[in-house]
Design a protein around this nucleic acid. Sequence first.
RNA 1: GGAGAGGUGGCCGAGUGGUUUAAGGCGGCUGUCUUGAAAACAGUUGAGUGAAAGCUCCGGGGGUUCGAAUCCCUCCCUCUCCGCCA
Length: 432
Amino acid sequence: MIDLKIIRDQPDMVRSALVALNTTAPIDEILSLDASRRQVVTEVESLKARRNEGSKEVGRTKDAERRAELIEEMRVLGDDIAAKDEQVRVTDEELRNLLLLVPNLPLPDVPVGPDESHNAVTKTVEAERKPDFTVRPHWEIGEELGIIDFERGVKIAGTRNYVLRGDGARLQRALITWMLDLHTQKHGYTEVYPPYLVLTEMLVGTGQLPKFAETQFRDIEGEKWLIPTAEVPVTNLYRDEILDEAELPIYNTAYTACFRREQISAGRDVRGIKRGYQFDKVEMVKIVHPEKSIEEHARLIQEAEDVLMGLELPYRLLQICTGDLSFTAANKVDLEVWSPGVAEWLEVSSCSNFLEFQARRANIKFRPTGGGRTQFVHTLNGSGLALPRIMIAIMENYQLPDGTFEIPRVIQPYMGGQTQIGKQGPIGPARV
RNA sequence: GGAGAGGUGGCCGAGUGGUUUAAGGCGGCUGUCUUGAAAACAGUUGAGUGAAAGCUCCGGGGGUUCGAAUCCCUCCCUCUCCGCCA
């Protein structure tokens, strides 16, 4: 949520930002609601001041007649106040609902462009190893090796689900552990394990609601939602809190499963494990002083890069332009890994700076050390990283001509020294 | 799931309809004193909104009343006991 004052004081600046974002928001409705709200608030508050004074006088007055007079006067006043209070309450609610639909404003250095075609590659890093044969897509060798079971995944959970098996499941677990160790031991993060099912307000706080309800999974009563990313519970950890400035910055990292109801056309990205309703991810979340968020964003990107460099995978950085910026972000840089089997760049991380957008929604503040008014913190987050696509990248970049693949060096200690993944044992009831 | 108790300012805790919308204590900050510190003493110390006056906030929401932390309804949460359970 952006500051209502910005819309009130610089409506034209906001309108042109919306054009750059290639989106719309109900700015005019907000402005007119705000104006009428302010007028009614002023009225009702002076009425309340009079009532407070009058009611105190009732307590002091001994004279019965005068007392009755005052009470009657205050009663009439009270009806007026109740009506206006209700008016303010309704207006407040409408105003907030509209405000929740206004996207974050991009930072000045975000390149302007209508859509993803204007995103800019700002860095490309090659890997030392490069297969010199035709690499087969991960879904082929995954099935062949018996580490991914697509059929049984769909059988038990429907489309866009799969089962990892044997060394496949083990490799993913090893990657998660290594990533968490990297962030906690090298990057100064604290590991947290949050709930996967959270209250509605949490998704409003981080910006998934109210606008993107259709991409979320919710429980049957509708009171709780499956998290689409660890960003939701981990950022909201501090909701409605006033932190001490000395506590900043706060770096938290979490591994969670993530659940997304993808609204994409059937048939797109359906092959393999690139896009499922459930996937695993290690997430990094930063709560920082507002003056520090720009430099923290740069560090966050570096920390995500460290994961790819550690795994020795080829990747590139993509500066997202205004038209492709997500609703909540003021700036966003994606990390994409190259996968030769599917022959495409796969997004494995989005590193975003939200400024105070989420902090306003979730009401996360800090108290300046020298005193003074409380202020909103800035929040940032980035994947570090998304597991299925890293699995794809490893299976394809580390592939050997015989359809097996090697395990990245940094992961080998997490796999008991194992260096390669080959065909798994037979599956099926016969084994049991 | 059943029974009972309770939710007040950073913390503890008083307050059961008005004459202080929050006593008192702890902690924090400032000052006096001191070579410095401690102690003592004095003052000060929440959030939101607003240019300010003011208004709002005693778990959330609703109600009664001229007036609610205080009475009523409802929801949430915490604690104790029982039941169930990975």
